[in-house]
Design a binder for these strands. Structure first.
Lengths: 215, 215, 215, 215
DNA sequence: CATGAATGAGCATTCATTCAT
DNA sequence: TATGAATGAATGCTCATTCAT
């Protein structure tokens, strides 16, 4: 269903990332994330990728296909961010560390763009939005929830709904930061500011979910 | 920044809302929120507003100007949403009620549109995004924080950072709901689902911020 | 189903042939008949019509729509060619006169173009080709056949299949002329040449369909 | 005008029909006749010929050159269609047989294509159209005219203009059939229908050109 | 010789904007 | 003031052609 990309003989098998394709993805990524799907033009993308407009269509079926490839890649990229959910580590270490890393990723300079861009188009490309959400966001929630469950099994936490608790922590970590960032009201927050917010989130979380006697 | 609207002599000064202007704003609102800034066309807007394309340019300097006016109005409109922050009401009543109303607004069917639309354009129109954020989101946080401070003064709560606490509650209320909704992964949540999430948020909030002996 | 053409107020009702629309049709006719549907470009048409490319789309929905309008008009135009089939006139007058007029129309300089152009596209736009055939060609055959029948009723002719006989005469009139003309092997034939061919066709026709004793 | 084909040393001189060239001609023929000159793309042709696009340009200078080669070949091919004009056969056998075969070729399903395709391009490539006409159509007329002359010499027919008479017969054989077919108004006619039309044409022809006493 | 990746000019079409009325 | 016809630049996309390998 997907057009086979050119597979020049001088490339060894499996080297599907011909430099042209890479070039295009990189250029397109920049332009799409900066201007959004509608705002980006294939001409601009070609210029940014330093290839001809025609070449774009050798590697991708159309604008939407190129966009989907970018989102797919972004999805893979973001899904790869490996938060440390080693169940052997205690919650006092894991939660603040995860919270900081998580918010840093969300609010990294020029990095909210992917989320914003996908969110923007989600109404017209629901499948794409939904899959991005599932792989990038829900996936992290799931892993975090699993960690919480593991620690609860050790008696460190008392939680009835792990999914919800995971979400609550992650949402609190963004408090004051992410929305201001994505609306361009504030720039990327400093690590110190992140630390403060995450620490507070952690305290609230423990207040609710740590057994009293352990306090 | 906004073009002076026509001010026909038969209208008293100050009656800037000529019915044509209203018509245009209403039509444009619908189209912009449905299709986004780039997706909307002046022709479609003219049709939706039942005026000629030319008339659009009598009242607004250009597409961006019309869009800005819509956002401005949306800002005013959403800022008006009157959550009940009467400082006389106790937290057990106010928090769940506010939380439910807040999430219902965020996730109302077809209603994430304004947030999504503004967010989408924020990279290219940062000023606009920033102002929307400030008036719509930050404004609600401020009023909620003021309420919390009022109740804290009565000894009902113990909070060091009211802004942050307000944010934390509001963020927790969205847990599992808003992001899934805006990415089109889930439809608008049911009132029951909202109630569950908000109740949980409330419990966590109280666990952290309600004085122990009051428990 | 057809987009309403602009109907400027300064034109009286019924004056649907705004000069711009006429201009476009004239320019498009020239370009389409010269280059064929695929060979013609909207840019060339716009230039030939001395309007902007955008204006083309104000009056016609797309290239195919403009082409169909041209063919429709050509159909009407060619259908209007009024051969004299007055049943009161005898066959010795009517047949040669009709034959000459018919071939002159078929082979008029620059005039085979419409037939050629429609024929060329008939494979991809069968409906259009079929309708052109019906209105332009079959229509004339029908009227001619009716004339023959009228004269046969007077005993001037003896024919079993009027349609076929009409076709036979018309086909013979084109002998050596039309195909050479349409393949650009010969230029438009001279009136003298046409007369010779038509006279011969008439003789053959009479030999077959005129009662012996009337010879 | 035609580019010299590659002439590899291992092929004896004169073996210009390298299999690649054959492949290309076959593929191109299919595509050109189906889609017309403008409708056909070199990419499609390459695919149909199972060669690379580059190879097309090894054997032919450009699209027009390849098209000309196809038409040239079609010309040769159609010129070869061997109607039986054995002067020893009498007209009662030869005419109906030839008429049927001729119309069957003209109207064979998917077979008007060559005629249509060449006719379509004749305005822009007059030389090509003219040559096709001469070789394919005029050639058959010539041979048929020669046959008529031979039979006239035997006293079987009395004809003053053999060319014209040949044309008249051939034109009558197409009556009601070919034009309807090429305009897509009717499908390929059945053999029975062809036989009826050809028989009638034969009768008319004999009525005009067979000596009276032989009737 | 044969390839197919790469090109850039050209295509049909859309749309924000202008302006005579 | 309000119109809507007209524009022309820009868009997404195709395709004949070239050329390094």
């Amino acid at each position: 269903m997907v057009a086979a990309p050119p597979n020049p003989l001088h490339l060894v098998a499996g080297d599907e990332e011909s430099s042209k394709r890479r070039q295009i993805l990189d250029g397109a990524r920049k332009v799409f994330l900066e201007l959004g799907f509608d705002g980006a033009s294939m001409g601009e993308i070609a210029r940014a990728a330093a290839v001809s407009k025609g070449t774009l269509y050798v590697y991708f079926p159309d604008k939407a296909g190129l966009f989907a490839a970018i989102v797919e890649e972004e999805k893979r990229e973001q899904g790869k961010v490996a938060f440390n959910f080693d169940p052997a580590r205690d919650v006092d270490t894991t939660l603040p560390e995860f919270g900081r890393a998580y918010v840093a990723v969300l609010c990294r300079p020029g990095g909210g763009s992917a989320i914003r861009t996908v969110m923007a188009i989600a109404e017209r490309m629901p499948e794409l939005g939904s899959r991005f959400y599932t792989h990038v966001i829900a996936h992290t929630v799931d892993r975090f929830a699993a960690y919480l469950e593991a620690r609860a099994a050790l008696g460190e936490l008392v939680i009835d709904d792990y999914q919800l608790a995971a979400w609550q922590f992650m949402q609190m970590c963004q408090a004051t930061l992410f929305q201001a960032f994505i609306f361009q009201a504030n720039p990327s927050p400093s690590p110190e500011r992140i630390a403060d917010v995450v620490d507070s989130a952690t305290r609230v979380f423990f207040a609710a979910y740590r057994p009293k006697q352990a306090d």
